[in-house]
Nucleic acid binder design. Structure first.
Lengths: 152, 152
DNA sequence: CCAATGAGTAGCATATTGCAACCAAAATGA
DNA sequence: TCATTTTGGTTGCAATATGCTACTCATTGG
């Protein structure tokens, strides 16, 4: 599989050298990650996404088209004819880690102690442990034990 | 430290039960995560953020204010007088995992093979290994080996 | 046949962003 | 000392993006 930058022509990057900025250019709007979240949770059809997110339909049309262009969703016309299915590509499925990180941060910081929320569980029903960046030896890393090399 | 939902009054959640949606409501706009990225990389002053991101100044003013309101940045007036410093709170620093996940996805999927990009390294200069969600026993998890419990 | 569903489009109103100019206090520097 | 620059904004206006409502047009299901 050829690995190419999925930049639909005409698109320009906010900060061409920064992977964080590129990711945000591709999926960093108000709705894209929620659409991807729902795709991961089984949504396939246009109306699935519309009902789960509550997004305006013209915007949904546009976001689905952009996500397809950008190689994150694949649009397949169902054999039955008119129905369209939007399924995650490999790049889309790989956003799982980003979604999990966002989910876990939200659980820790965006809920009052008494509030309940949905939970991500493994096949035996246990919640996933918290993601943690580490160095090559498995030692936990954070903001002040890492740095960004801006050259090369 | 009291753990309260940082919802500045008047704010309403896109999907109150979903931690992903709440995270996006708090930092999911075009600029907030880039501001946080720069804060993690040493930016403190208004003009630091303005130069690194290239964001319009009125929007920067607004985003900094919102991030402070939402408990992600702390605004401190430097002893010297006029200068303001925006520093990450504990919740802000905890977004490290989200930034790392976004960065690594971008490295994998938003660059052509020949392109170069900045790199996140540990104290000995080695790039951080890739984050991977696992279950309680350390087995790698992905989209189809997990599910979201919407109740509770 | 008739109603409902799926996947959109079109037109308009509102909200959000971006740009350029302006401003005042503090620090700098000649 | 006194002008200039830096810092951290604010204001007004233009350009974009988003959302709401109504309309299509082809299938399905009964």
């Amino acid at each position: 599989m050829a690995r190419t930058a999925p930049r639909a022509e005409g698109m320009s990057w906010t900060d061409p050298a920064c992977p964080v900025a590129r990711t945000l250019d591709l999926v960093g709007d108000r709705w894209s990650l929620l659409i991807i979240r729902d795709a991961m949770d089984g949504a396939r059809a246009f109306t699935d996404f519309q009902h789960r997110t509550g997004i305006a339909r013209n915007i949904l049309t546009d976001r689905l088209r952009r996500l397809v262009e950008r190689g994150i969703l694949d649009r397949q016309t169902a054999p039955t004819g008119r129905r369209q299915n939007y399924v995650l590509t490999e790049a889309g499925r790989d956003l799982f880690t980003v979604i999990v990180a966002a989910r876990q941060w939200g659980e820790r910081h965006a809920f009052a102690p008494a509030e309940t929320h949905s939970v991500l569980v493994d096949e035996s029903g246990l919640p996933l442990p918290e993601l943690r960046p580490t160095d090559a030896h498995g030692r936990p890393m954070d903001v002040d034990t890492t740095s960004v090399l801006h050259d090369r």
